[in-house]
Design a protein around this nucleic acid. Structure first.
Lengths: 335, 335
DNA sequence: CTGTTAGCGCCTTCAA
DNA sequence: TTGAAGGCGCTAACAG
């Protein structure tokens, strides 16, 4: 790999001059500039970002940590963040915590070592030790939380308005005439899940439907476990709910498997609404009514907030709540 | 951010000693080591990888370029590469070329500037100017091509055995009694597509079926265009093929849309087999017979080959062809 | 075992 | 407008 010095030698100028033409920070005469550019092309020179970063202590790199790349929601977030970052001259490096607090800790540490200028993080669901995040923020590393907003930490965040989003789904089911609506949630240790539950409760209340605690089905994030749980509770036709509201993709997969095992068809045997698109294409059936979170938007807005903080320094905490939208499809369309 | 010097001061030792305990390359006495570790913890010190890389000219970072992150095939490749890399102490940074040769060029350049130690690349389908790749390799940057193997460039590659994979699908359709089998391909400028076509042709020949050029449907990689093309050709019931073999995900989506528009049902009206899983879950219908490429394996093997080259220097060109597997589902099961 | 020191490649004052 | 030189944080000799 050629260095700036070799370019300077070939062009017959000093390294300073080469640097000036590369950064454009200082004017350089036309004649020297063309000579330098010719040398750069001739040598196939690529400025060493590592050295530049060491000197300027700016890497123009953002880190993003998500719990799972195989669910389409997270890659979409990453994509949004990448686009917003690129727009402003930054790159992003993405990594998976696999919902593991340990791995998250490692990654955070790795990112700091790699001198990322800011970090976007969807915290792992596992009991997250918030200590490290707090230290990170106190150390002055710009951080924005996405999707899952940790409580008790003063940090910028971008997520969907979970209460309103859940209401969207619940009200729709109620409007379709369903009355015994069960909600299938992930761990209620996650604030998002609690807020979605809250939206569900509010909707029932508003519609004058009495809340039945037996219809609040709390699970984890493993479709297999959820399928087992739902299967058990759907088996008894008498006690069976007439509709299901799932608060995320994994719970939806589990519930759908259980419904299939019990030969329950939507929307007649049972109504069905879930958060998060399970697949992007409309070709597949059953066509599922879905509460869609603006994943790309979440990523891009978060990146922009992070970049604002990086470029303009501290400011008050920003908390963005984006609206979800309801895509009504067959699985809940009874009237 | 604290530096190694501050750690040294706090621990009352020299920076050399701190460096030794961090890298573990030189033995350090128990007593000093504990002091240093205490200081590291106290200061929440994270070694600056940028400085380290400048010094050692080793970043332990691999770059990977894929044409599209929203197709599940590529994220799986990335995941495989990440895992293999992590296993050997490397990180990977992933980026999208969006099938654009320009963007690919930019990314290659960016990666070189970022001093990645090697590059995994799925070349963009757009007429790829191979010049840059060639220069890259000649400049001594280790490169491994995945999935799409450029011709005429001596480079390590990992991909599926396309001829055999296509045969797998074609022979299966023939075995099910289909005779007028159309093949829906992406641009035949891509070698993979040509080889898949070749597998199809060989299978027909072996089965004694005359090749009908009107049943070779070449398209691009945009589902909308493909849907239009297929729609036109499926409309005429007399000339209609009795089965479709799609050579990739986007063509499959297009073809499926057209089939739906023409109200054709699998497997009775028409048999259907495609490369690449369109969705991960078995819940959706139609259940499509799929030629599955071992995406994770492709990524991990490619990363390992790249790392071998990085760590052991030059060797002969390696060309890995992995076998695909056929997952038989409803869309082709007629007997 | 421990300390000292010379750069890695680049940007950025500062002088000329 | 151009050139010379210091130093970013770290590692790897080397000397002690």
């Amino acid at each position: 790999m050629p260095t700036i010095k070799e370019v300077a030698d070939m062009a017959g100028v000093s390294v300073g001059t080469v640097s000036h033409v590369i950064t454009g920070s200082v004017p350089v005469s036309e004649s020297l500039r063309t000579k330098v550019q010719a040398a750069i092309r001739e040598l196939d020179y690529h400025p060493n970002h590592v050295a530049r970063s060491l000197k300027t202590s700016k890497t123009r790199i953002l880190g993003i940590i998500v719990p799972d790349m195989t669910i389409s929601f997270f890659p979409q977030i990453i994509h949004g963040a990448e686009m917003a970052a690129r727009e402003r001259g930054y790159s992003v490096i993405a990594a998976n915590s696999s919902e593991s607090a340990d791995r998250q800790r490692e990654l955070l540490s790795l990112f700091r070592s790699q001198q990322v200028e800011g970090i976007l993080v969807v915290v792992a669901a596992a009991p997250t030790p918030l200590g490290q995040m707090t230290r990170l923020i106190e150390a002055g590393v710009p951080v924005v939380c996405l999707d899952r907003v940790p409580e008790k930490i003063p940090v910028d965040s971008v997520s969907v308005d979970d209460v309103a989003a859940a209401e969207l789904g619940a009200m729709h089911l109620i409007g379709q005439g369903y009355r015994r609506i069960a909600i299938v949630t992930g761990p209620l240790a996650l604030k998002n899940e609690r807020r979605r539950l809250q939206g569900y409760e509010q909707s029932l209340k508003r519609a004058g439907i009495k809340l039945d605690p037996a219809l609040v089905w709390q699970g984890n994030l493993r479709p297999d476990d959820l399928a087992a749980m739902c299967g058990e509770r759907l088996r008894d036709a008498a006690a069976r709910p007439d509709a299901l509201l799932c608060t995320n993709g994994p719970t939806a997969l589990g519930a759908l498997r259980a419904m299939r095992a019990c030969s329950l068809e939507t929307p007649d045997d049972i109504g069905f609404v879930t958060f998060d698109e399970l697949t992007v294409d409309e070709l597949f059936s059953p066509h599922i009514t879905t509460i869609i979170q603006p994943a790309y938007e979440i990523g891009s807005q978060a990146a922009n907030i992070l970049l604002d903080r990086i470029e303009n320094g501290a400011s008050e905490i920003r908390t963005i709540r984006l609206p979800a939208t309801l895509k009504i499809r067959d699985s809940s369309r009874r009237v």
